[in-house]
Each structure stands twice: as C-alpha cells, then as structure tokens.
Amino acid sequence: MDASVLAQLMLTADDDGADLATLRAIAEEAGELGAARALARLGLGDTGAAKDMAELRELLGAWRDAKRSAVKAAVGWIVRMLAALVLVGLAVRLGFSGWVK
C-alpha cells in the first residue's frame, strides 16, 4: 500500500467537499498506511511476520510455563525445609536427641 490512494482521497475531499464517505475513506486509508509503516519499522512488514509472531508467542508461553514451574518447585522446597526444621525442633524439644547417642 502506498500514499497515492490517500493523496487522491485528499484531493477528492478538497475538490468535492468532504462528505462523510470521503472522510471515512481518508481515515481508513491513513490508518492502514500508518499501521503498515509501523509494522515495517518494527521489522514485521514482510510475509513471514505472522509466522515469526506465532513463534514468539509460543516461546513466551514456554517461558511463562517454565517460570511458573520454577516458582512452584522453589515453594515446594521451602515448605519441605520448613517442615523438616519443625520436626527437628520438635525432636530436640521432646528429648529425642538422647536416642541418637
């Protein structure tokens, strides 16, 4: 898409007066042209961009899953360590340290 369609619509609006249909067409063409420019600046203006975005979304989903799993594992280890400390504390408090000797 290029700016020629937008320029022609602007000339039509200037010559004929700006009716609602012409203004809507101008806004639509300007929006599409701006979106195409923004995607091109981001490097997503080519035909492989959809595949690249799908792969990035998949990679981001995998990263989130891995992060969630790591947090669950860390919390599990912390809970187990606290439970072990409580059991050792109870054993010392109840006098089970004499059984070890």
Rank of each mutant, 00 (worst) to 15 (best):
A21H: 08
E28L: 14
W63L: 11
L11P: 00
V86E: 12
F96G: 09
V71D: 06
E28R: 12
L60K: 02
A50S: 11
A18K: 11
A40Y: 02
D2F: 02
G98S: 12
D2R: 01
V71M: 06
G17D: 03
M53F: 07
K67D: 15
F96L: 14
G48R: 12
A49N: 06
A74I: 06
V79F: 07
G98C: 00
T12D: 12
L87Y: 06
V75T: 13
R57D: 12
K72P: 00
A83E: 13
A30W: 03
D46K: 03
D16L: 11
V75Y: 07
L23E: 15
L20E: 15
M1N: 04
R37A: 13
S97F: 10
T12V: 08
E32L: 07
S97M: 07
G61T: 10
L33M: 04
D19M: 05
E29S: 14
W77P: 00
E29Q: 14
A50N: 03
E55V: 10
A38H: 11
L94H: 09
A74Y: 07
K51H: 07
D14C: 02
G89N: 13
L9F: 08
L9H: 06
I78V: 10
K67R: 12
D2Q: 06
M10R: 15
A25W: 01
T47L: 09
W63E: 13
V79G: 01
A66Q: 14
L33T: 07
T22N: 07
L90N: 04
M81T: 13
A62W: 01
V88W: 03
D15L: 12
I26K: 02
D16A: 09
D19Y: 02
A74E: 14
L56G: 04
G98L: 05
V5Q: 12
R41K: 11
L60D: 05
L20S: 12
D65W: 03
G43I: 13
I78Q: 15
R37L: 13
R41T: 06
L60C: 00
E32H: 10
K67P: 00
V79R: 15
L60T: 02
D19C: 11
L23R: 15
M10H: 09
S97E: 10
A13H: 08
V79C: 07
A38K: 11
G31Y: 09
A73P: 01
A38P: 01
L39Y: 09
M81S: 13
A3R: 14
R68H: 08
A36Y: 09
D52N: 08
G17P: 06
R57G: 10
A54G: 00
E32P: 00
S69M: 12
V88H: 04
L42T: 05
L42P: 01
D16V: 03
D52W: 00
L20T: 10
S4M: 10
L6Q: 04
K51T: 13
G34I: 04
L60N: 07
A66V: 02
W99A: 06
G76L: 04
V75H: 08
V100H: 01
